[in-house]
Nucleic acid binder design. Structure first.
Length: 131
DNA sequence: CTATTGACAATTG
DNA sequence: CCAATTGCCAATA
């Protein structure tokens, strides 16, 4: 007979795979994951799936951040601290509960790849003096 | 069945 | 920077 446990819908599986595909030391936002999973615009679905996803799967949930690179949990929360700790262990620096997507973003802008990664520490508005 | 919610995103003021 | 608004759609009540 059918398993008592409801099988995970394809959408959930795709989302999990997308999350598991995030390289170590990098972070991705919900919209990005949804797009990778073939579900453009379903960023909230990613959150729902992650929430329901059992930790036994070993999904790098801590590599998933908001579109602005901010932690998806309220600051000071337990999950928040744990996420920050995990990211720190991966080599990702978190400042003010926020991560520089321009530095650790998974699919950051192509321009940065061509011009080289910007400095992460002391990132001020450096004037670009290229001609 | 309808209403509300949500680990979101983007825009506007 | 913050607040409010709209779009999105599955899961839950």
């Amino acid at each position: 007979m059918k398993s008592v446990r409801p099988e995970p819908p394809p959408a959930h599986h795709a989302i999990r795979a997308a999350i598991a595909a995030i390289p170590q030391g990098r972070v991705a936002n919900y919209g990005e994951i949804a797009r990778r999973a073939g579900l453009p615009g379903r960023a909230r679905l990613v959150g729902t799936v992650l929430r329901e996803a059992p930790s036994a799967l070993g999904l790098p949930w801590y590599r998933v951040l908001r579109a602005d690179g901010r932690i998806a949990f309220p600051p000071g929360s337990k999950a928040f601290r744990e996420q920050v700790r995990h990211l720190a262990g991966e080599g990702v620096l978190v400042r003010g509960g926020r991560v520089d997507l321009a530095v650790h973003g998974w699919e950051r802008d192509v321009d940065h790849l061509l011009w080289g990664p910007p400095a992460q520490t002391g990132k001020r508005k450096s004037a670009r003096a290229e001609s």
